[in-house]
Amino acid sequence: MHNDPFLLGGHEFHSRFILGSGKYSLHLIEAAVRDAGAELITLALRRANTKEEENILDFIPKTVTLLPNTSGARNAEEAVRIARLARAMGCGDFVKIEIMRDAKYLLPDNAETVKATEILAKEGFIVLPYMFPDLTCARDLVNAGAAAVMPLAAPIGSNKGLAAKEFIAILIDEIDLPVIVDAGIGRPSQACEAMEMGAAAIMANTALATAGDLPAMASAFKLAIEAGRKAYLAGLGRVLTRGASASDPLTGFLRKGE
């Protein structure tokens, strides 16, 4: 879909599939990127904080844009420090804010995320905040200078799909920035459904990492995301309800010409 570019922070992409790089062997990253057709790949900076012989950065093809994340940050201050470190390490200006004060479900701390977004946006970062799908927070993130919002669909790693569907739909309706659905997407069909709803892109990691054949699943997600996008652009058809409606129109009493 070359006439349907994905604009993010002033950059133009053609893939709407953001790939994660965690939880699977580094040697599979290249094949995953290729089969996903991904142009953006996230990496945990804390995972890149390693010596040279197994540094994840060496396994990521140079053709894709890095999206370092701040996982491990427990508050805005730590997220800001990690983001600055990522930029200093040559990871570019994109940053995905992840702030968790919950080691069990890894749910994001929306309030701290807004604070970090404001600081980093002022410093020229292209900030993509991972968030719980809350409209008020999403508006705050827009005002703070975010380049997109990344609401979770379900708890991270759960492969539960669009558990937060209604709230994500509200964000898509009300927020003018791209809404990138992140976390919890377990199947290509769920990714497709989110794209049909009007999500701008999908981010997935565990669904691929836990698949039997990782590159093949990357390819399946690519196709599903493209199909969902196409359906969204085409305009979904009317859904017929079961059972007949009243044969006489309810407004039949209105006299013509009155």
């Binding site: 804390r46 904080n49 010596k51 491990g72 427990r74 730590e78 990690i82």
Partner: peptide, 16 residues
């Protein structure tokens, strides 16, 4: 560990 199909990780941590 790599031969067993696992991914050995030496570090996944940042001191804050």
């Amino acid at each position: 560990m790599a031969d067993e199909g696992l991914q050995p990780v030496l570090n996944d941590y940042l001191y804050m």
